[in-house]
Write a protein that binds this DNA or RNA. Structure first.
Lengths: 222, 222
DNA sequence: AATGGCTATATTGTCGACAATATTGGGAAT
DNA sequence: ATTCCCAATATTGTCGACAATATAGCCATT
């Protein structure tokens, strides 16, 4: 169940993906400065490569760059979380609606099978499930929309920033099983080809997730 | 009433903006290949600058790049138009809803004043009005949403691709005055702080615009 | 002691050259 | 005549060096 969609070919690709992972997973702290020379030595590539990677990360909203000054990893804040999740709610809600129309029967079967696999993982108590699993569920529905611009804006645009909030704030406790049930409901609506319901359920699901993360963020920062 | 929001500071900025304009306005044909060396001589900068500009254009969805092969200007097609406008409808509908809540009274007054100015232009028969005017109306509502991620995705993301369709397909005839009336209705809903209605009207407005462009595109290409 | 300006330093922006990869064209074999 | 392979060419990818800009620290002045 691996995501093999992005295959790095150039050195810039590899550095971009590596740097992105280091930021998302907190190896490079949120809010810290990104020195081009430092990263160049760290990843053993030239500064040009690092610059290109940073430019790409800017489009993912993972870093902010100021001309002649440099780039910083974005800071995680409640305001930004709300702003991000408002957009996410709108776009993924739309994706769910479109997926109910545009996914093939086979793709829907695969989606159900995926959820069955997730159920196993949830029951086994492996909390790490949420990390790749939830993402993968949303990932498939996004692709199922079959709308190229929507897919691009979500996957290449804000996907990893969303991951960054989840990974750094953690996602455990009762929310895991609740979220799983919500996924079930969404999949059922899609299976019934009920786009309207799928959109409503997806929006609601994302809204709940936002509240959960917002609370964790307020606890963490104060 | 000029948009002075983006101030180029580096050579890369200037080249990016210039190249973007040349693509949007059709000086560089849709679908054509972008040679780095050719553009470097054309704009009298180094290849590194051109590369950075092309990378940025990729995020605007104005060019598509293949590793080790090169970049091409995107092709305009009915399918892509539909895909783009589905996303636009969702995002700008949301922007209108948020603007009804988040714009200040002064900003709303300015918006009304802008429409009055547009009315003058429409009545004087200057069809070029639609170009900057319509854009500016939408631009203000997007900013009025006060949602940073939404603003970024629309203005830096798909704004210029939308412009490209409009500029290259032209926008004249009865649609101009109809669109103006629709703008009036949206502004009125925002003035009444009726976000729900503003969203519905904005979505409808964008849907009509899409149909208009789609028809022109089918006429043009066959 | 505080502030303002200047110099030294570090960092980013830009460039031209070289390396690696794709494309094109011609020649040979079937 | 067609197809396959190989060499020649052109284009993109990568690098290190230099230029321009911002930052930090020190000294002089008040």
């Amino acid at each position: 169940m691996l995501l093999v969609t992005e295959q790095p070919v150039t050195a810039s690709d590899k550095t971009f993906i590596q740097l992105r992972q280091d930021i998302v997973e907190g190896d490079i702290l949120s809010g810290s400065k990104l020195s081009e020379t430092e990263l160049a030595t760290r990843y053993a590539v030239s500064r040009a490569i690092v610059r290109e990677a940073i430019n790409r990360l800017e489009n993912c909203h993972l870093v902010e760059r100021k001309p002649n000054v440099g780039a910083r990893v974005v800071a995680l804040s409640p305001e930004r979380l709300v702003s991000l999740y408002q957009v996410r709610e709108s776009l993924e809600g739309m994706a769910a609606r479109l997926a109910a129309t545009n996914m093939t029967d086979d793709e829907i079967d695969d989606l159900q099978a995926l959820l069955n696999a997730h159920l196993q993982t949830v029951q086994s108590g492996d909390t790490y499930y949420q990390e790749a699993g939830d993402v993968d569920f949303h990932y498939r529905i996004i692709l199922g929309s079959k709308n190229d611009h929507l897919i691009s804006m979500l996957i290449e645009g804000i996907y990893h920033l969303i991951r960054m909030y989840r990974v750094q704030l953690g996602m455990a406790g009762p929310r895991v099983t609740t979220a799983f049930d919500e996924h079930r409901s969404i999949a059922r609506a899609i299976d019934n080809r009920d786009g309207e319901l799928a959109e409503i359920l997806m929006r609601r699901h994302i809204f709940y997730t936002r509240n959960n993360l917002e609370q964790k963020l307020l606890e963490a920062v104060g």
